[in-house]
Amino acid sequence: MTRTAEPRRAPVRPKRRSGLARWAGDTGWRHLMVVLVLVFALVPIVYVVSAAFNPNGTLSTTSLLPSSFGLDNFERLFTEPNVPFWHWFGNSLMIAVPAAFVSIFISSLAAYAFSRFRFKGRRPMLLFLLLIQMFPAFLAVVALYLIFGTIGDFYPVAGLNSKLGLMLVYMGGALGVSTWLMKGFFDTIPKELDEAATIDGASHAQIFFGMILPLAAPIIAISGILAFVGTMNDFILASLFLTDRSEMTLAVGLKTLVAEHSPASYFGLFAAGTLITSVLTVTVFMSLQRYIVSGLTGGAVKG
C-alpha cells in the first residue's frame, strides 16, 4: 500500500549499479529532498527557538543562534501570575480535542453518504459544501456574535463566554474540508467490500462502523490533526468568546504577550509558550502516526 517505491526494489532490474549509487537513487534522494524542505521549514522556527532560550530574546534582535542561553523565559512563563500558562494549555485541550472528535465524526458520516449512496441532489450538495467555505469570512464575527448572543439569552451554558459555544462554532467550521477529504478517501475503498458485507447480512450502519471507519483510520487521523490544529490556532473567535484570563486558550493567552506596546522582551516568553504548544501538536501527530502510515492492511483494500 505504502510502497510507491516498490517498482524500484523489484528484482526486474539486474543489480548493476554500485551500492552507493543505488542508495542515492533509492533512499538518498529522499533524504536530500526532505532535508532541503526541513531547512526551509526550520529557518523561522530557529528564530523562535533561540528567542525562547535567550533570556533577552526579542522578535528582532534574536539572531539564528542565541547570544546567551537560559531557561528564564520558561520559568517566567510558568510563574508569572498574569500568565496562567497551564490553564491556557488545559483550556485549549479541553476545547480542541472534543471539537475535533465531534466534527470528524459528523464529517465522516456525511462523507460516507456522499461516497456510498447515489441520491438526488448529491452533486449540488457536494459543490455547495465546497463553495460555502469560500465566502470571505470577515463579517462572520459580527454574525456569530449575533447568533450566540441570542443563544446565550436562552441557554447561557452555550452562549458567549462559554466554552461550549466556542466548541459548537469549531465543530461547524471544520466540516467542509474534512468531509471532502474523507469522501475522497472513502471513494478509494472498493465497493465490492460493501457488497460482500451486504450479502453477509450487514446493515449500512454495520458496514460504516465495522468496516469503513477502521479502514479509513489514516484519513481520520489526518482530518483530526487538521481540525485540532485549526482550533488550536484560532485567535479571533476565541478572543471574542473567552474574556477571562484563566479561561483563555493558548492562542489568545499567548497573544496577550505580544500585544502592541508590551515589552519587547515578552517575545521570549511568547516564543517559549509557542514552542510548548507546538510540542503538544507534534506529540498528538506522533501518537497518530501509526494510524496514518500503517492503518491499512494491503489485503483489505485489494479485496
Partner: peptide
C-alpha cells in the same frame, strides 16, 4: 514527518 508539520503547529500570526 514530525518536524515537517512544525510550521503548521506555530501560530500563523506570530
Amino acid at each position: 514527518r514530525s518536524v515537517m508539520i512544525l510550521p503548521y503547529a506555530m501560530p500563523s500570526f506570530a
